[in-house]
């Protein structure tokens, strides 16, 4: 609701305060009211965004659980990502693909072998479903072996399917960065409390070794499996490759860090 006039008073002269051409203004006249244009602050005036409180311990735990769940889902067969090109159609024609080619990142490189594979279509066939919960027209979608004509006949013996419930550790590998940080904080606190420089320097190395050992333990079975398979060329190559990487990265890391 506008209260008080903007510009229009001047014309009536001094006597015309609160009136216009001799007529009473239709709103309450407030002689004290002034028009104060705010100085122009530019297109983006300065504003101080409110800063949220840092997460509490329980909130951190909740987020941790959520991330864990999300990591599992994203690694699972149902999660899909589409390239922008593929959004409108399944097939990408050559011209489009060429136009979108990025010479810096799209050139095939050796390390792409290790890239995390992405789904563009959910893999529905790997797990059992409760068919009755789906509409009939989707039955053939969720179960490739389902045949409408044979459905009433004797059920064939199929490969048994299992729900994918995987261990969370493998999936949320990044989690250990949080832990590592916590450990480091604890270590630093300990260091401050002690005094001896030598001990302080040794401590982190020890912890790192422990961690490596723990990792080794985890994948013992995997390694055994690989060892038995001498004729797997890829495996052979990977092993050698890893050895080099280990030496280089490990050295550099230790030099930098401690």
């Amino acid at each position: 609701m506008p209260r008080g006039g903007g510009g229009g008073f001047g014309r009536g002269g001094a006597a015309a305060k609160g009136t216009m051409r001799g007529m009473q203004l239709p709103w309450e006249y407030d002689p004290d009211l002034e028009y104060k244009p705010t100085p122009n602050e530019g297109l983006f005036p300065k504003s101080v965004p409110p800063i949220v409180k840092p997460p509490t311990a329980s909130e951190k735990r909740a987020v941790e659980h959520y991330r864990n769940l999300r990591a599992r889902i994203h690694e699972g067969p149902m999660y899909t990502t589409l390239d922008d090109l593929k959004r409108d159609d399944e097939g990408v024609d050559d011209a489009k693909a060429k136009a979108a080619y990025n010479p810096f990142e799209d050139a095939p490189t050796y390390s792409q072998r290790y890239k995390r594979p992405r789904n563009t279509l959910p893999k529905l066939s790997d797990r059992p479903y409760v068919k009755e919960m789906f509409p009939e027209e989707l039955w053939s979608t969720i179960d490739e072996e389902y045949d409408e004509d044979l459905s009433s006949a004797v059920p064939t013996i199929k490969k048994k399917k299992f729900l994918d419930i995987s261990e969370p550790k493998k999936y949320d590998a990044l989690r250990r960065f949080d832990e590592e940080e916590a450990k480091k904080a604890a270590l630093e606190a300990g260091k401050a409390g002690k005094e001896a420089g030598g001990e302080g320097a040794e401590a982190p190395e020890e912890s790192e070794e422990e961690e490596e050992e723990a990792v080794d333990d985890d994948f013992e079975e995997d390694e055994d499996g690989a060892g038995a398979d001498d004729y797997n060329a890829e495996q052979y190559f990977e092993d050698g490759d890893e050895g080099y990487d280990d030496a280089g990265a490990g050295d550099a890391g230790e030099d930098d860090g401690y």
Binding site: K170, L174, E180, E238, E242
Partner: peptide, 24 residues
């Protein structure tokens, strides 16, 4: 880089100090 299948689970060895700080 951290999600690459060869780096995953071996971050300690394969990522440098700075990279780890960045990830954190």
């Amino acid at each position: 880089k951290a999600e690459r299948t060869d780096v995953k689970d071996h971050e300690q060895e394969k990522l440098g100090q700075g990279e780890r700080a960045y990830l954190r």
